[in-house]
């Protein structure tokens, strides 16, 4: 059953007609032609479909598009609208990729993660939950833990870690 919904994608309001079963990822890629989010596992295990949805990092493969009518989505491509985002520049500076397939998801995840950390969100490796979290506290183990939802099968993790560390300023 087809229904038309509205999404704001990378700053543009777009109407898109979707089936009840269409995922947000397929709506973006196949219906709106935005191939920035990638289909890796399509089961929520790899993070390559990550976007910023209403300001937060969010998977698009485990999301039915109908449920997100009216949402505001920023993809990695959208982050570069006015020149490269500092996270994107840092990935270039530190070779935070090899084949590049996971990179748009890694970039969106890093942007969302840094925002979470700046708003006092703790992680699994945070020692003391009473101490406020800040960007300066992001140790390597904090960054690794907070980025664990994004797999890189080329194994570019050292570069990804260095890139995120540069932007965090830790």
């Amino acid at each position: 059953m087809d229904t038309t919904i509205e999404l704001t994608v990378d700053g543009e309001r777009r109407a898109v007609t979707v089936d009840t079963r269409t995922t947000l990822l397929d709506a973006l890629r196949e219906r709106l032609g935005n191939t920035s989010p990638k289909k890796g596992c399509d089961h929520g295990q790899c993070g390559s479909c990550t976007v910023l949805l209403d300001g937060r990092r969010h998977l698009t493969c485990l999301a039915l598009a109908l449920s997100y009518d009216g949402a505001e989505i920023t993809t990695a491509a959208g982050l570069a609208r006015d020149g490269l985002h500092p996270v994107q520049q840092a990935f270039l500076d530190h070779d935070g990729y090899q084949c590049g397939y996971c990179t748009p998801g890694q970039v969106c995840s890093a942007v969302g993660m840094l925002d979470e950390a700046s708003r006092d969100a703790p992680s699994h490796v945070t020692e003391d939950l009473d101490v406020p979290t800040t960007l300066e506290d992001l140790t390597d183990s904090e960054i690794r833990e907070r980025m664990s939802g994004n797999l890189c099968r080329c194994g570019a993790y050292p570069g990804i870690l260095a890139a995120v560390r540069q932007v965090a300023g830790a």
Binding site: G44, G47, T50, R56, R57, H58, L59, L62, A63, S109, G112, M113, E116, P122, S123, H124, T126, L129, R146, M147, S148, G149, N150
Partner: peptide, 16 residues
């Protein structure tokens, strides 16, 4: 409760 949640899933999935 915080610890259990933080030990589960990924940052993206916990947002959803």
């Amino acid at each position: 409760v915080s610890r259990a949640l933080l030990a589960g899933a990924s940052g993206q999935i916990r947002n959803q």
